[in-house]
Deep mutational scan, measured.
Amino acid sequence: VTLFVASYDYEARTEDDLSFHKGEKFQILNSSEGDWWEARSLTTGETGYIPSNYVAPV
């Protein structure tokens, strides 16, 4: 399981994006799509795309 933590807050801009807060942890589901990764929030359980430059490895 690949875990990352949010370095910043992010507000979703499309329905496919995932909003999150600094400190929130994610399981990365797919990182092969470039700068936007499909992730599941371990806080909310929601799945969506997050900007990879807003998160760091745990």
Rank of each mutant, 00 (worst) to 15 (best):
F4L: 04
L18F: 08
T14G: 15
V5N: 02
G45N: 07
E33L: 14
T2R: 12
E15T: 12
T2W: 12
E33N: 15
Y54R: 08
A39T: 01
E24P: 00
T14E: 08
V5I: 12
V1T: 13
E24V: 04
N53H: 12
S7Q: 15
R40D: 00
Y49V: 07
Y10E: 00
K25W: 13
L29D: 03
D17W: 12
K25R: 11
F26C: 04
Q27N: 06
I28C: 04
F20H: 00
A6W: 03
A12Y: 03
A6H: 00
T14S: 14
W36R: 14
V5R: 06
R13P: 07
V58I: 13
E33C: 15
S31I: 11
V55S: 03
D16V: 13
S41E: 02
E38G: 04
L42Q: 06
T14F: 15
K25L: 15
R40W: 07
E46T: 07
V55Q: 03
F26G: 00
E38I: 15
G23N: 05
N53I: 10
T2L: 14
W37H: 03
D35T: 10
N53G: 11
E46G: 07
Y10R: 04
T44S: 09
S32F: 09
R40V: 10
G34P: 14
D35S: 09
E24A: 05
P57T: 05
L18M: 13
T2Q: 12
R40C: 08
I50G: 01
S41F: 03
E46L: 15
S19V: 02
E15V: 11
P51F: 07
A56E: 14
L29V: 07
K22Y: 06
S52L: 05
S19M: 03
N30P: 04
W37Q: 02
K25C: 12
D35L: 12
H21F: 13
T44R: 04
F26K: 00
T44M: 02
D35A: 10
A6S: 05
S52H: 07
R40E: 05
T44G: 03
E11F: 10
L29N: 04
G23A: 03
R40S: 04
D9R: 04
L3I: 15
N53R: 13
W37L: 07
K22M: 08
A56G: 08
T47L: 07
S31G: 09
L3P: 04
G48V: 03
L3W: 11
G34L: 11
P57Q: 08
Y8F: 12
Q27E: 14
N53V: 09
I50H: 00
D17F: 15
G23H: 04
V58G: 06
S41R: 12
W36Y: 11
L18G: 01
F4S: 02
V1Y: 14
D16S: 14
G45S: 05
S32D: 11
D17C: 15
T43S: 12
Y8C: 15
S19N: 06
E38W: 15
Y49E: 02
D16N: 15
G23Y: 05
L42M: 11
T14Y: 15
E38A: 08
V58A: 09
P57N: 05
P57W: 06
Y10A: 01
E38L: 15
K25E: 08
N30R: 08
A39F: 04
D17Q: 15
Y54C: 12
S31P: 09
V5W: 06
E38H: 14
T14H: 14
Y54A: 14
D16E: 12
I50R: 00
K22V: 09
E33H: 14
F4M: 09
S32V: 10
T47E: 08
H21W: 08
E11K: 11
T2P: 11
S52Q: 07
W36I: 07
V58R: 04
G23P: 01
Y54D: 02
S31Q: 13
D9W: 05
Y10K: 01
Y49P: 01
P57D: 04
Y54G: 06
S52C: 13
A56Q: 14
D35N: 09
S41C: 06
Q27M: 13
D17M: 14
T47V: 14
N30Q: 08
Y54P: 03
D16K: 15
H21M: 12
I50T: 01
I28K: 03
G45F: 07
Y54I: 06
S52M: 09
G23D: 05
E33D: 15
S41T: 03
D17E: 15
Q27H: 11
L18R: 01
V5P: 00
Q27L: 14
Q27D: 06
V55E: 02
I28L: 06
F26A: 00
F20D: 00
A39G: 05
V58W: 13
G34R: 12
T43W: 11
Y54V: 05
A12K: 08
L18V: 05
D35R: 08
S19H: 07
S32R: 10
Y10N: 02
V1D: 12
Q27Y: 14
G45K: 05
Y8S: 09
K22G: 04
Y8Q: 12
L18S: 00
